[in-house]
Computed example of a mutant assay.
Amino acid sequence: MNPARASSQRLLALAIASTLLVACQPGADPQQQQAARAEAREQAAEAMAAEFDKAYAAENWNLARAHGDILNDEYPGSAAAERIHARYEETREKAREQRETLRLAGLWTYQTQPFKDGLQLSASLYSREPVDTDGGGAHPVQLIFRDNPDWGRSSYLVLEAGDFDCYGGCKVKLAVDDGESRRVDASRPKTDEAIAMFIEDEAMLWKTVKSARRIAIEFPVKAGGTRTAEFEVGGLAPEHMPGWR
Protein backbone atom coordinates (compact mmCIF):
# COMPACT_ATOMS: atom_id res chain seq x y z
CA MET A 1 0.00 0.00 0.00
CA ASN A 2 1.15 3.54 -0.74
CA PRO A 3 2.73 4.94 2.50
CA ALA A 4 0.83 8.23 2.17
CA ARG A 5 -2.45 6.38 1.70
CA ALA A 6 -1.74 4.10 4.67
CA SER A 7 -0.96 7.17 6.78
CA SER A 8 -4.25 8.74 5.70
CA GLN A 9 -6.19 5.69 6.74
CA ARG A 10 -4.46 5.60 10.13
CA LEU A 11 -5.24 9.27 10.67
CA LEU A 12 -8.90 8.68 9.85
CA ALA A 13 -9.11 5.70 12.18
CA LEU A 14 -7.55 7.66 15.05
CA ALA A 15 -9.77 10.66 14.43
CA ILE A 16 -12.89 8.51 14.40
CA ALA A 17 -11.85 6.64 17.54
CA SER A 18 -11.11 9.79 19.51
CA THR A 19 -14.27 11.56 18.37
CA LEU A 20 -16.52 8.58 18.99
CA LEU A 21 -15.02 8.16 22.45
CA VAL A 22 -16.73 11.43 23.32
CA ALA A 23 -19.85 10.86 21.27
CA CYS A 24 -20.49 7.29 22.37
CA GLN A 25 -21.35 8.09 25.96
CA PRO A 26 -24.54 6.72 27.51
CA GLY A 27 -27.49 8.31 25.81
CA ALA A 28 -25.64 9.37 22.64
CA ASP A 29 -28.02 9.28 19.69
CA PRO A 30 -27.28 8.11 16.10
CA GLN A 31 -27.27 11.69 14.80
CA GLN A 32 -24.55 12.61 17.27
CA GLN A 33 -22.50 9.60 16.26
CA GLN A 34 -22.93 10.46 12.56
CA ALA A 35 -21.82 14.02 13.25
CA ALA A 36 -18.79 12.68 15.11
CA ARG A 37 -17.81 10.53 12.14
CA ALA A 38 -18.19 13.50 9.79
CA GLU A 39 -16.01 15.62 12.06
CA ALA A 40 -13.39 12.87 12.18
CA ARG A 41 -13.42 12.64 8.40
CA GLU A 42 -12.82 16.37 8.09
CA GLN A 43 -9.95 16.16 10.61
CA ALA A 44 -8.29 13.38 8.61
CA ALA A 45 -8.81 15.35 5.39
CA GLU A 46 -7.21 18.43 6.94
CA ALA A 47 -4.24 16.34 8.07
CA MET A 48 -3.71 15.08 4.50
CA ALA A 49 -4.14 18.62 3.17
CA ALA A 50 -1.40 19.74 5.56
CA GLU A 51 0.93 17.14 4.00
CA PHE A 52 -0.04 18.46 0.58
CA ASP A 53 0.75 22.02 1.72
CA LYS A 54 4.23 21.01 2.90
CA ALA A 55 5.08 19.20 -0.33
CA TYR A 56 3.70 22.10 -2.39
CA ALA A 57 5.79 24.64 -0.48
CA ALA A 58 8.89 22.49 -1.07
CA GLU A 59 8.01 22.27 -4.80
CA ASN A 60 8.05 18.49 -4.54
CA TRP A 61 5.38 18.19 -7.21
CA ASN A 62 5.20 14.41 -7.38
CA LEU A 63 4.71 14.07 -3.62
CA ALA A 64 2.22 16.94 -3.53
CA ARG A 65 0.26 15.30 -6.35
CA ALA A 66 0.23 11.99 -4.45
CA HIS A 67 -1.18 13.66 -1.32
CA GLY A 68 -3.71 15.54 -3.43
CA ASP A 69 -4.77 12.32 -5.15
CA ILE A 70 -5.42 10.63 -1.81
CA LEU A 71 -7.29 13.63 -0.44
CA ASN A 72 -9.60 13.73 -3.46
CA ASP A 73 -10.03 9.95 -3.65
CA GLU A 74 -10.73 9.33 0.03
CA TYR A 75 -12.29 12.63 1.16
CA PRO A 76 -14.11 14.02 -1.89
CA GLY A 77 -16.21 17.05 -1.14
CA SER A 78 -14.37 17.79 2.09
CA ALA A 79 -13.54 21.37 2.99
CA ALA A 80 -9.84 20.49 2.73
CA ALA A 81 -10.27 19.11 -0.80
CA GLU A 82 -12.07 22.28 -1.85
CA ARG A 83 -9.39 24.46 -0.26
CA ILE A 84 -6.51 22.93 -2.21
CA HIS A 85 -8.40 22.36 -5.47
CA ALA A 86 -6.73 25.07 -7.58
CA ARG A 87 -3.23 24.24 -6.35
CA TYR A 88 -3.91 20.52 -6.78
CA GLU A 89 -4.70 21.03 -10.48
CA GLU A 90 -1.54 23.11 -10.83
CA THR A 91 0.47 20.41 -9.06
CA ARG A 92 -0.80 17.66 -11.34
CA GLU A 93 0.46 19.56 -14.38
CA LYS A 94 3.80 20.40 -12.78
CA ALA A 95 4.28 16.78 -11.69
CA ARG A 96 3.64 15.65 -15.26
CA GLU A 97 6.16 18.19 -16.57
CA GLN A 98 8.70 17.11 -13.93
CA ARG A 99 8.35 13.45 -14.91
CA GLU A 100 8.74 14.33 -18.58
CA THR A 101 11.84 16.42 -17.86
CA LEU A 102 13.42 13.53 -15.97
CA ARG A 103 12.49 11.07 -18.71
CA LEU A 104 14.08 13.22 -21.43
CA ALA A 105 17.23 13.78 -19.37
CA GLY A 106 17.55 10.02 -18.84
CA LEU A 107 17.70 9.38 -22.59
CA TRP A 108 21.18 10.94 -22.83
CA THR A 109 24.45 9.18 -21.99
CA TYR A 110 27.62 11.13 -21.21
CA GLN A 111 31.09 9.61 -21.22
CA THR A 112 34.58 10.80 -20.37
CA GLN A 113 37.40 8.57 -21.61
CA PRO A 114 41.20 8.92 -21.47
CA PHE A 115 42.71 9.56 -24.91
CA LYS A 116 46.47 9.89 -25.23
CA ASP A 117 47.35 12.93 -23.11
CA GLY A 118 43.80 14.22 -22.80
CA LEU A 119 40.17 13.24 -22.42
CA GLN A 120 37.52 12.40 -24.98
CA LEU A 121 34.05 13.63 -24.09
CA SER A 122 30.83 12.45 -25.68
CA ALA A 123 27.07 12.91 -25.42
CA SER A 124 24.79 10.40 -27.12
CA LEU A 125 21.24 9.10 -27.33
CA TYR A 126 19.28 6.55 -29.31
CA SER A 127 16.44 7.19 -31.73
CA ARG A 128 12.92 7.28 -30.35
CA GLU A 129 11.97 4.22 -32.40
CA PRO A 130 14.13 1.54 -34.06
CA VAL A 131 14.66 1.93 -37.80
CA ASP A 132 14.94 -0.81 -40.45
CA THR A 133 18.13 0.29 -42.21
CA ASP A 134 18.95 -2.93 -44.10
CA GLY A 135 15.66 -4.73 -44.73
CA GLY A 136 16.42 -7.24 -42.01
CA GLY A 137 14.60 -5.69 -39.07
CA ALA A 138 14.55 -2.52 -37.05
CA HIS A 139 17.49 -1.36 -34.94
CA PRO A 140 18.19 1.78 -32.89
CA VAL A 141 20.08 4.62 -34.55
CA GLN A 142 22.50 6.53 -32.33
CA LEU A 143 23.28 10.25 -32.42
CA ILE A 144 26.67 11.18 -30.94
CA PHE A 145 28.47 14.43 -30.22
CA ARG A 146 32.18 13.87 -29.59
CA ASP A 147 35.02 16.10 -28.44
CA ASN A 148 38.38 14.41 -29.10
CA PRO A 149 41.81 15.96 -28.27
CA ASP A 150 43.24 14.96 -31.68
CA TRP A 151 40.24 14.90 -34.02
CA GLY A 152 38.35 17.85 -32.63
CA ARG A 153 34.58 18.10 -32.39
CA SER A 154 32.17 16.09 -34.47
CA SER A 155 28.56 14.96 -34.66
CA TYR A 156 27.49 11.73 -36.32
CA LEU A 157 24.93 8.96 -36.62
CA VAL A 158 25.78 5.32 -35.99
CA LEU A 159 23.89 2.29 -37.34
CA GLU A 160 23.78 -1.21 -35.89
CA ALA A 161 22.91 -2.81 -39.24
CA GLY A 162 23.07 -1.86 -42.90
CA ASP A 163 25.07 1.12 -44.12
CA PHE A 164 24.73 4.72 -45.16
CA ASP A 165 24.79 5.57 -48.85
CA CYS A 166 26.86 8.68 -48.27
CA TYR A 167 30.44 7.86 -49.31
CA GLY A 168 31.98 10.98 -50.82
CA GLY A 169 29.34 13.15 -49.23
CA CYS A 170 25.58 13.61 -49.44
CA LYS A 171 22.72 15.75 -48.23
CA VAL A 172 20.46 14.70 -45.38
CA LYS A 173 17.23 16.34 -44.23
CA LEU A 174 17.06 17.82 -40.76
CA ALA A 175 13.67 18.68 -39.24
CA VAL A 176 13.33 20.43 -35.89
CA ASP A 177 10.19 20.06 -33.78
CA ASP A 178 7.26 20.91 -36.09
CA GLY A 179 9.29 22.99 -38.53
CA GLU A 180 10.05 22.33 -42.18
CA SER A 181 13.06 20.14 -42.93
CA ARG A 182 16.23 21.59 -44.46
CA ARG A 183 19.11 19.93 -46.26
CA VAL A 184 22.48 19.73 -44.51
CA ASP A 185 25.83 18.26 -45.51
CA ALA A 186 26.87 14.79 -44.35
CA SER A 187 29.57 12.25 -45.21
CA ARG A 188 30.37 8.58 -44.62
CA PRO A 189 34.06 8.03 -43.76
CA LYS A 190 35.84 5.20 -45.57
CA THR A 191 36.27 2.95 -42.54
CA ASP A 192 34.75 -0.31 -41.38
CA GLU A 193 35.39 0.36 -37.71
CA ALA A 194 31.91 1.77 -37.27
CA ILE A 195 28.88 2.31 -39.48
CA ALA A 196 28.95 6.07 -38.99
CA MET A 197 27.95 9.16 -40.94
CA PHE A 198 29.09 12.65 -39.95
CA ILE A 199 26.80 15.65 -39.91
CA GLU A 200 29.35 18.12 -41.18
CA ASP A 201 28.23 21.26 -39.37
CA GLU A 202 28.46 19.93 -35.82
CA ALA A 203 28.26 23.41 -34.30
CA MET A 204 24.95 24.04 -36.06
CA LEU A 205 23.55 20.67 -34.99
CA TRP A 206 24.63 21.19 -31.37
CA LYS A 207 23.03 24.62 -31.26
CA THR A 208 19.88 23.18 -32.82
CA VAL A 209 19.66 20.32 -30.33
CA LYS A 210 20.19 22.65 -27.37
CA SER A 211 17.00 24.56 -28.19
CA ALA A 212 14.80 21.73 -29.55
CA ARG A 213 12.56 19.08 -28.05
CA ARG A 214 13.02 16.66 -30.91
CA ILE A 215 14.79 16.42 -34.25
CA ALA A 216 14.44 14.07 -37.19
CA ILE A 217 17.20 13.20 -39.66
CA GLU A 218 16.40 11.58 -43.01
CA PHE A 219 19.40 9.82 -44.54
CA PRO A 220 20.13 7.58 -47.57
CA VAL A 221 20.95 3.88 -47.04
CA LYS A 222 22.65 1.27 -49.21
CA ALA A 223 19.54 -0.91 -48.99
CA GLY A 224 17.84 1.74 -51.13
CA GLY A 225 15.92 4.90 -50.49
CA THR A 226 16.04 6.89 -47.30
CA ARG A 227 15.24 6.28 -43.66
CA THR A 228 14.32 8.70 -40.90
CA ALA A 229 15.48 8.58 -37.30
CA GLU A 230 13.73 10.77 -34.74
CA PHE A 231 15.46 11.82 -31.53
CA GLU A 232 13.91 13.29 -28.36
CA VAL A 233 16.72 15.72 -27.57
CA GLY A 234 15.00 18.03 -25.07
CA GLY A 235 16.82 16.62 -22.04
CA LEU A 236 20.34 17.55 -23.14
CA ALA A 237 22.59 18.79 -20.31
CA PRO A 238 25.16 20.97 -22.17
CA GLU A 239 27.40 21.29 -19.12
CA HIS A 240 28.69 17.77 -19.83
CA MET A 241 30.33 19.12 -23.00
CA PRO A 242 31.92 22.35 -21.72
CA GLY A 243 33.81 23.20 -24.89
CA TRP A 244 30.68 23.35 -27.02
CA ARG A 245 28.59 26.48 -27.50
Results as ranks from 00 to 15, higher is better:
Arg153Pro: 00
Ser124Gln: 13
Leu159Gly: 01
Asn72Glu: 02
Thr133Asn: 13
Glu74Asn: 12
Leu102His: 11
Ile144Leu: 08
Tyr75Asn: 10
Glu89Gln: 14
Phe115Leu: 01
Asp178Tyr: 02
Pro76His: 09
Leu119Arg: 01
Gly162His: 03
Cys166Asn: 03
Ser187Ile: 15
Ala79Gly: 11
Asn148Phe: 12
Ala79Pro: 02
Leu174Asp: 13
Asp185Lys: 04
Val172Gly: 09
Glu90Phe: 13
Pro140Ser: 06
Tyr110Glu: 10
Tyr88Asp: 06
Phe115Glu: 06
Pro140Arg: 02
Ala79Glu: 14
Glu90Met: 09
Ser78Gln: 12
Glu129Asn: 12
Val158Glu: 15
Asn148His: 15
Gly135Asp: 04
Arg183Tyr: 03
Cys166Pro: 03
Asp73His: 14
Ser154Gly: 06
Tyr156Val: 06
Cys166Asp: 01
Asn72Gly: 06
Ala161Pro: 00
Asp73Phe: 12
Ser154Lys: 05
Glu90Tyr: 02
His85Lys: 09
Ala138Met: 07
Ile70Arg: 06
Arg92Asp: 01
Tyr88Ser: 04
Ser154Asn: 08
Leu119Gly: 00
Tyr110Thr: 01
Asp178Thr: 13
Leu125Phe: 08
Pro76Ser: 04
Leu159Glu: 13
Leu157Ser: 10
His139Leu: 02
Asp73Leu: 15
Leu159Arg: 05
Ala95Trp: 11
Leu71Arg: 12
Gly162Cys: 05
Asp73Ile: 13
Asp147Tyr: 12
Tyr110Ile: 00
Asp69Gln: 03
Thr91Leu: 00
Arg96His: 10
Gly135Lys: 08
Pro149Ala: 03
Trp108Asp: 13
Asn72Ile: 09
Val141Leu: 08
Pro189Val: 02
Arg103Trp: 01
Ala95Asp: 03
Asp163Thr: 07
Glu160Ser: 04
Phe145Lys: 04
Arg188Asn: 11
Glu97Pro: 12
His139Ala: 11
Ala86Lys: 06
Cys166Tyr: 03
Pro130Thr: 07
Asp117Ser: 03
Phe145Ala: 07
Arg96Gly: 04
Ser155Glu: 10
Cys170Asp: 07
Asp73Tyr: 11
Glu100Ile: 08
Ala86Met: 07
Ser154Arg: 07
Leu125Asn: 10
Asp117Gln: 05
Ser181Val: 04
Arg99Gly: 14
Ala186Gln: 05
Gly77Asp: 05
Ala79Arg: 15
Arg87Lys: 07
Gln113Leu: 12
Leu157Ile: 06
Glu129Arg: 04
Glu93Gln: 08
Gly137Ala: 11
Cys170Val: 03
Ala161Ile: 09
Gly168Phe: 02
Val141Arg: 07
Lys116Cys: 01
Asp117Asn: 00
Lys190Leu: 11
Pro76Tyr: 04
Asp117Tyr: 03
Arg146Asn: 09
Asp163Lys: 09
Val176Cys: 02
Arg146Tyr: 01
Leu102Ala: 13
Asp69Ile: 10
Ala81Arg: 06
Thr91Tyr: 08
Asp165Val: 01
Glu82Lys: 15
Gly118Tyr: 04
Tyr126Trp: 07
Gly179His: 12
Asp165Gly: 01
Lys173Asn: 12
Gln120Met: 10
Leu121Val: 00
Leu102Trp: 09
Asp69Asn: 13
Gln111Asp: 08
Arg103Thr: 04
Cys166Trp: 12
Leu104Glu: 15
Arg92Gly: 02
Arg153Trp: 05
Gly77Asn: 00
Asp117Cys: 00
Tyr75His: 15
Glu97Ala: 14
